[in-house]
Nucleic acid binder design. Structure first.
Lengths: 238, 238
DNA sequence: CTTCACGCGTCAACGCCGTTGACATAAGGT
DNA sequence: ACCTTATGTCAACGGCGTTGACGCGTGAAG
């Protein structure tokens, strides 16, 4: 049914659910975020969300056309939270590092939303603000416009790519997640020195390294290389 | 049931299905890839795969313990295809660049599969070979083991991250994809100089830049920064 | 203060999904 | 030629998202 949903602005009557709570888009999105944070990504089903809200599961269809729609609303909320309170310091490398890490950690803390919607270009308010901020940092740092735009692209998509990759791993249902993480110990640490000498020689290091995210290092490498380019441009310019 | 699956090596008897086809891991994985390519990522269900194979859906459980297991096999096949035919040249930067671009383009040519399985750690044959190769390139280049492992992690996850990000965008259903791509022209190019000065100043550049992938530049930046680190290590070492 | 339209919570049901256990059958070493 | 057992098939389970019909009670209208 397409016309089940009444736009939030036009809602007039509020009927409490059986258990007494009053529903709204806001309450539902917040409950969904709480559910995800507390009980993992498997917990977000229409039925369980209904249960958590103390309402019939199908009541949600009065607020969102599909479960997908609900997830997009959750994702939108995330973008806002990632940027909330950020201020430029004047040190462009520190600023970009901070922005990158914020996006990454914010997406990872709500992995299934990140996985579903992290690669979309929304064109909405929060996204536009982020683009403006990052471009500003780069141009103020002294990158000429064409270079600023190219680095912007690499920087943003690197952050989103890692965010989606790590979020997707975080969002795996329990058993699969443990299995994937265990591979480094259970399997790679036991490969023969003969067939896989390089893995065998670094097995212990690998197990430890792969437990975390590769993003912080990749981010630093990108920033370092960008700084080298900037120095080169300045050196030639003068 | 855990003991339904007989390891591929030990399989002896082959009984054709009702419709006459003979099953094997290989046939199943290939059919799965075809299904994904032709009918999108939602098309990969046990039941539909069984239908496409002309077999009872549950016959798959003789080959893969769970549907997730099957997905891992698909992921590994993708990794294998990305690597097929690659040979080291001795120039570590060129080698890593080639591997990175291969993974990226291979995943993008199977966007549905990449989106579904690109972030998994399979621990299977092709993945192990890839890990071994990349570690080998880095260690032969002269990176000490701890550094080699860290750079391996950043390099691989950056490649996978961009691959999944770009694949996800490629795999968007037509209208949504055009909408997302159009945002740069339709929306960002029209923002006011006053509220978004940096976007307004670079709008034309942005529209052109965001049409492609940011990966090639990000890859080069990562390799350049890694080379700088290596030079530093060598300088100090001597 | 009454009336009454309709917003929205509820219920039952549909058709998918992955997975299991029991069963049928035919291949192949002996 | 037998007999073990690999492997295809079938029926069934519980969970999922989603829909259509129903009716309660709220808030506006008179």
């Amino acid at each position: 049914m397409n016309d089940r949903v009444v736009p939030e602005a036009q809602r007039r009557r509020r009927k409490p659910t059986k258990s007494g709570t009053v529903l709204s888009e806001e309450v539902i999105v917040e409950t969904a975020l709480r559910l995800l944070a507390q009980h993992g990504s498997e917990a977000l089903t229409v039925r369980r969300l209904g249960l958590a809200l103390g309402a019939d599961p199908t009541a949600l269809y009065r607020y969102f056309r599909t479960a997908d729609d609900l997830l997009l609303a959750v994702a939108d909320e995330l973008i806002g939270r990632a940027q909330c309170g950020w201020e430029p310091t004047g040190d462009w490398q520190a600023d970009l590092r901070a922005i990158g890490l914020r996006i990454h950690s914010c997406y990872r803390s709500h992995p299934q939303a990140a996985r579903l919607a992290g690669y979309r270009t929304t064109g909405r308010r929060h996204e536009a603000a982020a683009v403006e901020n990052i471009l500003g940092v780069l141009r103020r740092a002294g990158f000429p416009d064409p270079e600023a735009v190219r680095i912007y692209h690499a920087f943003v998509d690197q952050g989103l790519g890692f965010a989606i990759l790590d979020a997707a791993a975080d969002a795996l249902p329990g058993p699969a997640r443990q299995a994937d993480e265990g591979v480094w110990q259970e399997r790679y640490a036991r490969l023969s020195t003969h067939t896989h000498p390089n893995i065998a020689a670094t097995a212990g290091l690998l197990t430890r390294e792969m437990a975390g995210s590769g993003y912080p290092l990749a981010l630093d490498l990108l920033l370092a290389a960008a700084a080298a380019r900037l120095a080169l441009l300045r050196g030639e310019g003068v």
